[in-house]
């Protein structure tokens, strides 16, 4: 089942075309990393999917519904400004439930019912805080949380509405190394959850598209890496997807053995980041073919 379908999307700011003819299909349960040279349009792509920057050309569909503006189907975690200062951690997480499930008149005029519902919302919020290992910080305001804790809360806040896809723009970019590793492991745990769900025939809950400038992080956390760049034969038109391949899957308990990633990292550097290596943009776009091949092999055995 496709969570996100991007077809022939181009985007420009004024005269300058930033994104050119992007095509992308993301399935429920995938955790996809987006890498690319600085300023190539990664954030622009995320904003287009979010719906705050409508595309000039092409269509974006989340769960089959065309994106026309920010909605509850697409979640977002920013590098900064992720939480509301005036809400405690649990209130921040419960905010989505409150906004999505109840209305202003309901909260103002049916307050006994709202009061009851509120309790249930906070219960669910605390359950999500448990998932990101923050059950003890439920009553704290964002100003009293560390950067890593804030990002955890932000992820729980976005996840609670079960968006079709969660977008993360350099979510761990401002964190120190150790905190960063903790959060990466948390995403790996989510991925294991997805695999379990798939095995049991349920729809996986965590579908993510995250931008990072750390190639190790991209290959370690994601199951699929996408490279965005304008270093291809019609790059003068703008950046497009020049790399789309599966990548190694780590379990949370696996050693962080990045030597496994060396070869693919080299390939990525070459295909996405080298301005002198000009190729046709589809040369390294083989994710779905490789998946199909793997499925066929599996069947043959």
């Amino acid at each position: 089942m496709d969570s996100l379908v991007i077809e022939n999307v181009s985007h420009w700011y004024g005269e300058t075309r930033v994104l050119n003819d992007i095509n992308l299909r993301i399935e429920a349960g995938q955790i996809v990393a987006v890498v690319g040279p600085s300023g190539c349009g990664k954030s622009t792509l995320l904003k287009a999917i979010l719906g705050t920057h409508p595309t000039n050309e092409g269509t974006i569909k989340a769960d089959g519904i065309p994106v026309t503006g920010p909605s509850r189907h697409v979640g977002m975690v920013y590098q900064h400004y992720s939480l509301y200062d005036f809400l405690t951690a649990e209130d921040n997480v419960a905010l989505g439930l409150k906004l999505d499930e109840t209305s202003l008149p309901y909260r103002w005029f049916a307050w006994p019912a709202w009061h009851k519902k509120r309790k249930e919302h906070l219960e669910r919020a605390r359950e999500y805080l448990r998932r990101v290992n923050l059950q003890d910080a439920a009553k704290r305001y964002p100003s009293g949380l560390s950067g890593g804790m804030r990002q955890r809360v932000a992820i729980a806040q976005a996840m609670i509405l079960k968006p079709k896809i969660l977008l993360l723009d350099e979510p761990f970019g401002a964190l120190d190394e150790a905190t960063r590793e903790d959060l990466q492991i948390m995403l790996l745990q989510f991925y294991q959850e997805n695999l379990r769900a798939k095995a049991e025939g349920r729809v996986p809950e965590y579908t993510m598209l995250f931008v990072t400038h750390e190639l190790n992080e991209a290959l370690y956390v994601a199951d699929r890496v996408i490279g965005l760049s304008r270093f291809h034969s019609d790059g003068h038109l703008g950046a497009t997807v020049v790399y789309d391949r599966p990548c190694p899957i780590f379990k949370p308990e696996d050693p962080r053995d990045f030597s496994r990633l060396l070869e693919q990292k080299e390939e990525l550097r070459n295909a996405v980041f080298d301005p002198d290596y000009i190729k046709h943009h589809s040369e390294y776009v083989s994710f779905w073919d490789e998946i199909a091949l793997e499925a066929a092999n599996l069947k043959a055995n």
């Binding site: 400004y81 509301y84 906004l99 509405l161």
Partner: peptide, 12 residues
């Protein structure tokens, strides 16, 4: 960002 985020959380 705070406003866009609220829209993604279902705000009117």
């Amino acid at each position: 960002e705070a406003i866009q985020k609220a829209y993604t959380l279902g705000a009117s």
